[in-house]
Simulated assay, not measured.
Amino acid sequence: MTTAVLVEYIDQHRARFGVEPICTVLRKAGMQIAPSTYYAAKSRPPSARAVADAQRLEVIRQVHTDNYGVYGVRKMHAELNRRGHRIARCTVHRLMRAEGLRGISRAKGPRTTIPGTGPDARPDLLDRDFKAPAPNRVWVADITYCRTFAGWVYAAFVIDVYSRRVVGWQLSKSLRTDLS
């Protein structure tokens, strides 16, 4: 934890417990802060970097809003330089991350259809006629995918053409898993 976070925590609870007891408990919990560190942090003026970061963050917020919130770090850095704000790309990255500003990802999904090298030897058994005279006579299958926090998940479905109900499905983290 940073000193600023610890100072803020002490500020919230100092009226009830006092500064020194809070610092003692925090030290026992592995957070190294002394009462003198707390008082020094409260009495000194903000650093030059903190003042500059506050000014830069206002500009970054404005540029982010002006561009509908779609600019990421790379485009934000270029736009700031075009507007005459000389700022390092790593600083833009640090400030945007701290403020929770993100660009829109234009990443595409995984490639699920890879064309073969030769002619397609599989016959079309339905002749593109997706009608069934009774249940459980004609089944079709489809596959889809969705993004999760753990990565891409693939879902394969088997559907009865007559009733249009799912008769089987399988989820997998790999596109190469057989249906069973």
Rank of each mutant, 00 (worst) to 15 (best):
T113F: 15
F130K: 07
A132I: 05
D127L: 14
Y162P: 11
D120A: 07
G100T: 01
G103M: 03
W152D: 06
M96P: 00
L126P: 09
K108E: 14
D124G: 10
F149P: 03
P110D: 08
T148V: 07
V138Q: 11
V138K: 11
T113L: 14
S163K: 09
V158P: 04
A132E: 12
G109E: 08
P135Q: 08
P110Q: 10
R147F: 12
W139V: 04
E99A: 01
R137W: 01
T112F: 07
I104P: 01
A107L: 13
Y145P: 00
R122T: 15
I114E: 14
G151R: 01
D142C: 12
G109K: 13
C146A: 05
T144Y: 02
R147G: 04
V153N: 03
G109Q: 01
P115S: 12
A150Y: 04
Y154W: 06
T144L: 04
A107M: 15
N136C: 14
G100C: 02
I143D: 05
M96F: 00
V140S: 12
P133L: 02
P123D: 05
V140W: 06
R111M: 13
D142W: 08
W152S: 03
A98H: 04
R164V: 11
S105P: 08
A132N: 12
L126D: 13
P110H: 07
P135L: 06
S163T: 15
V167T: 13
L95G: 00
R97Y: 03
I104G: 10
T148K: 08
Y145A: 02
L95N: 01
A155G: 04
Y154L: 04
P133A: 12
V166P: 09
A156V: 06
I104D: 10
T144W: 06
A155P: 02
V167M: 13
D129S: 09
W152T: 03
G100V: 00
K131M: 12
A155V: 13
V153A: 13
